[in-house]
Design a binder for these strands. Structure first.
Lengths: 143, 143
DNA sequence: ATGATAAAATAGAATTATTCTAAGTTAATA
DNA sequence: TATTAACTTAGAATAATTCTATTTTATCAT
């Protein structure tokens, strides 16, 4: 069962409607590793659904988040990005072009807290951001 | 030389003015580990400088960032937080109360990229966010 | 000390991302 | 096919941040 099919059954299970707009948003997100913003999705949707509104995009994103089928990525200080891949992973960000990539490695073993903090804090997760220059930006020369 | 003295000399070196508002913002930031937002700082400033404006707060924060004396922390999806501690470190976030703590451990040795990614990406830094429940929220029971 | 001046502070308008609202539309079900 | 709760829509509202035009002031040369 792929992403879209999986979520369609989740929508049904929750008694939510399967509207053309929602299906189009799912199609846009399925396998999407570009970490789009709400606006990216809105622009993409406009192509097939010219009357779609931002409210629908945000509403759908919220419903997906609520069902655990979408993650909000807090990396860009200016806007929210979204990630349909909900398996735990980390991100690698190009500080020149802003592109975001995925890193599927579990670093939990190595990421131990200092004793004093670890004794007080109930740890539930971690997330690593890697910074640097992507291949394209490296090649194309300096800023 | 402490934080405030250090920055005062940087301001002088850059030919910037040392205004009472800026000095008050420096005083508010010096040794501040609470990761305040612009509004937090604005509210604090109001106590001693009732006519201060948001523009002054933002302008000063920008000048500090430009001088490398302040870091913008992108952890909260809804607003920017600021950190006067510019030595590399990581953060620990309570998912219940939103408080942000500092972790001064260098995990770089352990945070190696997968070969294929590492070969293409010029890595310059990393940042770890730890998630969980702080002591207070653990103790006070469930949400 | 004083005056000149570039830099900064201020109030409020503008911008941008996101959320809300009210009214019309529709998917799902009986 | 009718009913209805849920959805979509346009546009207003909100909130964080930035911009603008004007007034004020820290600094420096005198």
């Amino acid at each position: 069962m792929n992403y879209t099919e999986n979520i369609i059954s989740k929508y049904r299970a929750h008694g939510f409607k399967l509207t053309p707009q929602r299906l189009a948003i799912l199609k846009c997100l399925d396998g999407n590793t570009s970490h789009p913003t709400a606006e990216d999705i809105y622009i993409e949707l406009k192509k097939t659904h010219p009357t779609v509104s931002f409210a629908t995009v945000y509403n759908t994103l919220t419903s997906l988040k609520d069902m655990g089928a979408l993650l909000e990525v807090t990396i860009d200080p200016d806007r929210k990005h979204f990630d349909p891949n909900t398996t735990p992973h980390h991100h690698i960000i190009c500080t020149k072009c802003g592109s975001i990539g995925d890193i599927f490695v579990d670093y939990s073993q190595a990421l131990t807290l200092p004793e004093d903090v670890g004794a007080e804090f109930f740890l539930t997760g971690n997330h690593v951001d890697f910074y640097g220059l992507c291949k394209r930006c490296r090649t194309k020369g300096q800023v």
